[in-house]
Design a protein around this nucleic acid. Structure first.
Lengths: 336, 336
DNA sequence: CTAACTGTTGTAAACGATTGCACCTTGTGT
DNA sequence: ACACAAGGTGCAATCGTTTACAACAGTTAG
């Protein structure tokens, strides 16, 4: 067979029409006469012609793909979101490029790069920590912020972090806990501040105060959860329940607690955040706040596609609801 | 400022040279005179010119990206591999497009699509189950198979699955187990057959036989592990140790066993495969066979880049070594 | 003094599509 | 019979680069 790949020229020659007609047959068939259309389609079939998206995109001044920029590609939290995004994007004829901000030296630098490289019709950003003027570049594509919340008016898809925290606290309180601690993410992180705010407010609503020494700091990772557990165990006066800002930290925490010979929920009740897949298979099952990640991905893609279609740098934001998933890691506190 | 984005024409005009010289200054600076070079670079800086990769790629007959095609994007197993790949690819100026084969209807169809779409300079395939003639298309890009092993001579990056299985069995045997079962993946899967073969051989080397009723079937997922646990518990004569073909299944299995009031490793010792991050935080810590996923990603990217550079459809394969990670899920069998 | 290089630059033709505009048929109304 | 509209098609410019080739100036060797 042919080594060469057929171009639109070949198809045009074989069908006995001009390239314009071939192009039209493929993009808006309605404007070409049925007879010609058939001839062209036949020629397409004969040659095995596949449209060259690069050339088409060049002419159309678009790229045909969007970039998802995450802090760390290795973090499995994102994979399910990707799956949702991919489904919608594929449908719309867009490809999904992934990149992380931590590979190179300067994260903000990477953002700027992708903003100006012109390699994408849109950008989905999973990392809210960058200075605003980075976005101030001439012909930049639309940007959608996912998961990380920001004070300004960039379009975003987020979950209701405060409400999630309130659900967690409410559940623990209902089980009888008064001494409730919080295991946070990195202090500068917006998720941390939102969840902490929700935590504090919920406690206040119950007439409780958030004790500073019961607020432990982590970085969302399992290891940091384990480290926090060691600090918790060293506490002279320990909270009987802990709300963790991520399931991963909750897992690390529980693991370390178990290794020390203590029990969950016997010695401490735990609520996580995210509902990652493993949560329900742990022993005990991890009570947690579910973030519907596939839906986050779907909606993100949809919103971005709308912005691209409207050729607009702004657009609506969306807040996705979270949900309390009750499992066995919460129990009434041991009676004193 | 300007709304328009500067093109090579603008730079050429401002620098007072031809577009050819601008292009050369940017791609092979050595051939242009230092004085002109400086002038061009100055003009580039002044205009904020960014090269249009699409146009460049069109002209160069390349796309500037590779596609990673996985069975299921939501599976976190791949994310760490992506991270490794991305690092290398970015370095080489290539983007990483991700897609999964399960979104559409027919998985093989999706493969064919990406093979012919001409959207990538290379394809990384994480799913070995497709008929060979799918690859028989005119100008297809190089394809590298990752993780799933195949009998023919497609370039691939795999781990030594048989050896991994042997390590697992060896470790269990050393702990004193004679009654060792296997929790497999889907029967048609190559990983399943390789690990099963390694399992059987290792048993044979110990003078043991693989009992068919001790070979449980799963699909690599946590849920299937939990289901297998229920079948295991129903067994009249249960093996005292189980080698699971994935950590996920091991986790599901352990969870279900715990819920039934039995203990790991008290009632059954477990060895997993993969060493996913959560393995060390479980209770008990999961003994497993480590697959160095970042390295798999790195090497895959490197091999594919070599093929692309050499413009060749074939290339070397690589087998990555696995390693036994001992944790607390293995103990001597309860004395009868 | 001429021929043959070498080093540097410009001209212009690709790459493979899309699309505004002009053109040619027909069909319809008067 | 004529004007006009509508439907269908082709011409050729365009998207923003890269690169083969030619051109030209200044050495250098013979």
């Amino acid at each position: 067979m042919d080594r060469k790949i057929a171009t639109i020229q070949d198809v045009a020659r074989i069908a006995g029409v001009s390239t314009a007609t071939v192009s039209r047959t493929l993009s808006k068939p309605s404007v070409v006469a049925p007879a010609t259309r058939d001839a062209v389609l036949q020629a397409v079939a004969d040659t095995g012609y596949r449209i060259n998206t690069q050339a088409a995109n060049l002419r159309r001044q678009r790229t045909g793909s969007v970039i998802a920029l995450v802090p760390n590609l290795a973090n499995p939290f994102f994979s399910q979101i990707f799956a949702g995004m991919s489904a919608v994007l594929t449908e719309a004829g867009l490809g999904l490029l992934v990149a992380d901000t931590q590979t190179g030296s300067d994260p903000e630098e990477r953002l700027s790069y992708h903003l100006t490289s012109g390699n994408a019709d849109g950008l989905i950003l999973f990392d809210g920590t960058f200075s605003r003027d980075r976005l101030n570049v001439p012909g930049r594509p639309p940007v959608l912020l996912v998961s990380e919340w920001m004070e300004d008016d960039l379009p975003s898809v987020t979950v209701d972090n405060r409400h999630g925290a309130a659900l967690a606290v409410g559940h623990l309180a209902q089980a009888g806990h008064r001494a409730i601690g919080f295991l946070s993410g990195p202090p500068e992180n917006v998720l941390t501040s939102e969840r902490l705010a929700g935590f504090t407010t919920a406690l206040a609503d119950l007439g409780l105060v958030a004790r500073p020494d019961w607020i432990l700091e982590g970085d969302f990772s399992m290891d940091s959860g384990a480290a926090a557990a060691r600090r918790w165990m060293a506490l002279p006066d320990r909270p009987t329940a802990l709300f963790c800002a991520s399931d991963e930290m909750a897992i690390g925490f529980m693991g370390a607690v178990h290794r020390a010979g203590l029990s969950v929920p016997g010695d401490v009740s735990i609520v996580g955040f995210d509902n990652i897949e493993v949560a329900q298979h742990l022993t005990p099952g991890l009570t947690t706040i579910r973030q519907p990640r596939t839906i986050i991905g779907l909606r993100s893609a949809e919103l971005l596609i709308d912005m691209i279609a409207a050729n607009s740098l702004s657009g609506p934001s969306e807040v996705i609801e979270v949900e309390l998933i009750k499992r066995a890691s919460v129990a009434p506190p041991r009676s004193p």
